[in-house]
Amino acid sequence: METREVRVVRDFMEQVRSGVDPDAAHRFMADRVRAHQVHSEEAVTVERTPGQYADHVRDMLAAYGDFGLRLDELFGSGDRVYARWIQSGRHLGEVDGLPPTGRPVTQVASAVYRVAAGRIVEYWIQIDRHGLRAQLSHT
């Protein structure tokens, strides 16, 4: 049986993170979410509102088009939910200063989400940014 926390993250991934309905972020996220991100092996923590997250997803749509998101792993324990996914699209907009190439792009990512009172309140995410950059700059 799927827990409430796992269901929140599944619905968030399928509706918001996938780009299907970025504005639905307010249904799944607390007013302020602590996002712990790994950038070149350096941990960075930012706070995001649901509106800022929706804008982030719209930026991804501009960069990669109507991308696909395949959820490969999803399970939880208590208030923590682990998700691993593969996102596939095309390089249609500028990314990290690199002009669009139209080439296929695949990102592999995983995150642990902390859910409280039915909303995501914090997450720790890792994305293969080096692999993404290699795909974008490959000639």
Rank of each mutant, 00 (worst) to 15 (best):
G78I: 03
A25V: 08
Y123M: 02
Y53N: 05
R48C: 09
V57N: 04
E73H: 15
Y53Q: 04
R10P: 02
G65A: 10
R90G: 03
R17H: 15
A24P: 00
H130A: 15
I125N: 06
R119L: 11
Q135A: 02
A43D: 09
Q87G: 06
D21A: 13
L98D: 02
V33L: 05
W124R: 06
L136F: 02
R48W: 08
L74Q: 11
S77L: 10
V38R: 04
E73N: 14
D128T: 02
M13C: 10
A116D: 12
M1S: 15
M60K: 11
Q37L: 13
H26E: 12
S88P: 06
Y82N: 07
S88Q: 15
V95C: 03
R70T: 15
A24R: 04
L69I: 12
L74H: 06
V95Q: 00
E14S: 12
L69T: 10
D72K: 11
F75T: 15
G51V: 04
G68K: 14
D11H: 10
G51L: 08
V20H: 09
I120R: 00
R7G: 03
F28R: 02
R4W: 01
V112P: 04
E94D: 06
L136K: 00
R4S: 15
Y53E: 11
P50G: 05
E5V: 11
T3F: 07
D31K: 13
L61Q: 09
R4D: 14
T3I: 09
S18D: 03
F67V: 05
V9S: 05
M60R: 13
R114S: 09
R17G: 04
T49H: 05
M1K: 14
T49V: 08
S88A: 15
G19H: 03
R84L: 10
R32V: 14
D79I: 04
M13L: 12
A117Q: 12
I86F: 08
V57T: 05
G118F: 04
H56M: 12
T101S: 12
R114D: 05
T45K: 03
Q37R: 08
T3G: 10
L132I: 11
V6R: 04
A116E: 14
E47N: 08
R7Q: 12
L132T: 07
R32K: 15
T101C: 05
R32Q: 12
D59Q: 08
Q52Y: 02
G102E: 04
R114C: 07
S110L: 13
E73M: 14
G51A: 13
A25R: 00
R90L: 11
R90A: 12
F67R: 02
M60I: 08
F28C: 05
G131T: 04
R80T: 11
D66S: 15
Q15M: 09
E5R: 08
V108K: 12
E5H: 11
V105N: 00
T106S: 13
E14W: 02
R4C: 14
V38E: 08
M13K: 06
G65N: 06
T49Q: 01
E5L: 09
R34I: 14
G131S: 01
D128S: 06
S88R: 15
T106A: 14
V46W: 03
S77V: 14
T139S: 14
I125D: 06
V8N: 03
V81K: 06
E42W: 03
Q52D: 10
V95M: 05
R10M: 10
L136E: 02
E94R: 11
V38W: 01
H39D: 05
S40Y: 05
Y113V: 05
V38T: 10
F67M: 03
D59S: 10
R80C: 09
